[in-house]
Structures are given as structure tokens and as C-alpha cells.
């Protein structure tokens, strides 16, 4: 019993010098381990006479509780100490670079094109496509280009080499995505409501012209479609693309396959027309969005659509020009060189 009292007296002090988990385990084992002092005393309990055994047992349990409590206190102290050490350690140099998976970028033309497509798809347009090589029938004839007319000079064409003596229609690289108008109307009866993106080709090469460039064509054909719908559609589009404050204007123009033909301009989103040296609008206050018009009745007829029953509008936008404006690209050829240092800047 005296031994137990001595133990009880020493328990708390024995945990005080503990500085680590192994030390904690050793001190704990000194009391309650297989050969621990309390364990040894417990083992001797059967030797005691009945009445004493009960008292001794209660005392043992009290000492055991005391050891456990002291252990818990010590554990808590160690944890707090360790946490304080962790929190106080040398901070990370967070300016070291992150381990970043390489970011690949879509080409500026793709990004511009997808923004444009998404704006029209949100208005209910579906996406149509046609081949990049086509025949003069679809590129010119069915679109009502007058043969042997200066209108043909507006689109200087790349023709494909054909065997000598070939008699069929001439094959060419399409000069506009308007070929898809023809293909779409020939494929099914109205209503038609599509945008047709894609590469087109013209024999032109300077700072603002590339022999290959990207266009998107729009076509809506149904009963009761008027020029006011064209204006409303392109106005909505311009606001989606350039911002809600943008306004649009429509002015007369000429394309062989639309009548009336118009150009659509959007007010300059950058300066609103207030900056005479604006880099976006060059001081005019307006940006050309694209050419458009009501589908010429001859074109409808050529594609098997009754122009008395149906009317429609079409428009064409140059994606390269839009991308050049948006990303301030000084020369169109940069878009096709794919210099990584250029691509990575966008």
C-alpha cells in the first residue's frame, strides 16, 4: 500500500520531462507496461486477503486513472508543442514557379470563330459546312454572278488544274462560304437557319489580304423574312460580340447574290466614335462587321425555292478581320505563320 502511495505521488512528475512520443511511451510503460510498477503491484493482488484485496483494488484503479490522465495531459502538451513548431517553421518561397501542366492555346482564328458561332447558335442557328473545293456552279452560277461581268473581279479565283479536254464545270477553291447557301438550300426545303464557317481562298496577298482566310456565312430562308430581320439579327449579334452598348447601322452595298445588299457597321466599342486616332475604328466611329442582304430571288429559284413564297437573308463575316481587330494583330500573315512566340502571346 505504501508502494502504491509512492507511485501515486510520483506519477505526475514522471511525465513532466517528456519531450517526444517515444519518451511518453517509455514513461507510460514504467507504470502501466507489462513490467510497469502498477502492473507488478496488480499481479500481486491475489496474494492479499479478501477484505484488503478490495481496498487495494480500488486504490490501484485510482492510480491507473491518474496515470492515464497524466498521459493525456502530456499528449496534449506534445501536440501543442509540435503544432507550434510547424506553424513557426521557415516559410515557403512562394515565388518559385508552379508545376503547371503546359497550357495549349486554340488559334486566334478558332477562338474568334467559336465566339461568333456561339453567338449565332444561341439565337437558334445550326452549323452547316461544305467542301473547300467546289465547282464554279456553286461558287458563281447558282449565286447569280453574271458571266463576264466586273463583279467577278471582286473575287479573284484559284482554279484547280483539270485534265485537258475536260468538259464538266470548272473546279476551284471556293472564294466564299456562300457556296454553302446553295448546298444547304439544295439539301432540304425551307425553313433554313444556318451559319456556315470555313476556309475560303482568293488570289490576293498583302498586309490585309491573305490568299486563304476564314469566313462565316449566315442564311435564313422562311416565309415572312425581311430586311428588318436581318438588321435585328446582326444587331443582336454585334451586341453579343462587342458589348451591349454597341449600336449598328446598315448602309447600301452590292453583292451579286443579294438584293438589296447592305454593309453592317457596329459602333466602335473602344471609343464610341470620340477618338479621332482610335486604333480600332481609325477615328470613323464605325467598324465594318460584314456584308449582307436579302437573298436574290434568282438564287432562291436556282436552288429550287419559290421566291414568291419564301424570302430570306444572308450575311458573310470575315473572321480574320474580326480577330485582327480584337487582338490588335498588325498583319494578316502573322495568323498563318504560327510562330509559337506569336501564338503564345494570345
Amino acid at each position: 500500500m505504501e508502494a502504491l502511495d509512492a507511485i501515486e505521488h510520483d506519477v505526475d512528475a514522471s511525465f513532466l520531462p517528456v519531450q517526444s512520443d517515444p519518451e511518453l511511451r517509455a514513461v507510460y510503460a514504467r507504470w502501466l507496461g507489462r513490467e510497469g510498477a502498477v502492473t507488478l503491484l496488480m499481479r500481486r493482488m491475489p496474494e492479499l486477503p479478501g477484505p484488503e484485496r478490495k481496498t487495494f483494488g480500488q486504490a490501484i484503479n485510482r492510480v491507473k486513472d491518474k496515470v492515464e490522465a497524466a498521459k493525456t495531459v502530456c499528449e496534449q502538451r506534445l501536440r501543442e508543442h509540435a503544432r507550434a513548431l510547424d506553424l513557426g517553421r521557415e516559410p515557403l518561397d512562394v515565388s518559385l514557379p508552379g508545376r503547371k501542366p503546359r497550357v495549349g492555346r486554340l488559334h486566334p482564328l478558332s477562338r474568334m470563330m467559336y465566339d461568333v458561332i456561339d453567338a449565332f447558335v444561341a439565337m437558334g442557328f445550326d452549323v452547316a459546312e461544305g467542301p473547300e473545293t467546289d465547282w464554279e456552279t456553286n461558287n458563281f452560277e447558282r449565286l447569280g454572278f453574271p458571266p463576264d461581268h466586273p463583279a467577278m473581279d471582286m473575287q479573284d479565283t484559284f482554279f484547280l488544274q483539270q485534265p485537258d479536254g475536260a468538259t464538266g464545270p470548272r473546279a476551284l477553291l471556293r472564294t466564299h462560304t456562300s457556296t454553302v447557301q446553295v448546298r444547304e438550300m439544295l439539301s432540304h426545303a425551307p425553313p433554313v437557319m444556318i451559319v456556315a464557317p470555313g476556309a475560303v481562298y482568293r488570289r490576293d496577298d498583302d498586309a490585309t489580304h491573305s490568299p486563304m482566310f476564314a469566313q462565316i456565312e449566315g442564311l435564313v430562308v422562311d416565309q415572312g423574312i425581311a430586311l428588318s430581320h436581318l438588321r435585328g439579327t446582326l444587331d443582336t449579334f454585334a451586341r453579343k460580340l462587342f458589348g451591349e452598348r454597341v449600336t449598328t447601322r446598315m448602309r447600301g452595298s452590292y453583292f451579286p447574290f443579294t438584293e438589296p445588299s447592305v454593309e453592317l457597321d457596329a459602333s466602335c466599342a473602344l471609343c464610341g466614335g470620340s477618338d479621332p486616332s482610335c486604333r480600332m475604328c481609325k477615328g470613323s466611329g464605325w467598324l465594318e462587321v460584314g456584308g449582307a442582304g436579302m437573298v436574290h430571288p434568282t438564287v432562291l429559284k436556282n436552288c429550287g425555292v419559290d421566291p414568291e413564297k419564301y424570302t430570306g437573308f444572308a450575311f458573310g463575316l470575315g473572321i480574320d478581320r474580326l480577330a485582327m481587330i480584337r487582338y490588335q494583330i498588325p498583319e494578316i500573315s502573322l495568323l498563318y505563320q504560327n510562330d509559337v512566340r506569336f501564338l503564345e502571346s494570345l
Partner: peptide
Amino acid sequence: GRVHGYDKIHNAVLPASGASAGARGD
């Protein structure tokens, strides 16, 4: 239309007349 002035033509909302494209690509 030219003489009347295209600026006098208002913005009209398209009647809902969408249809799936017939000339399809990938």
C-alpha cells in the same frame, strides 16, 4: 430602300423558325 434610307428600317426579332442544317460537316 436606298432612297427611303436603311437607317429607317428597324430591328425586328426573327420568328422562331430554326431547322437542322442539311449540309453537314464534322
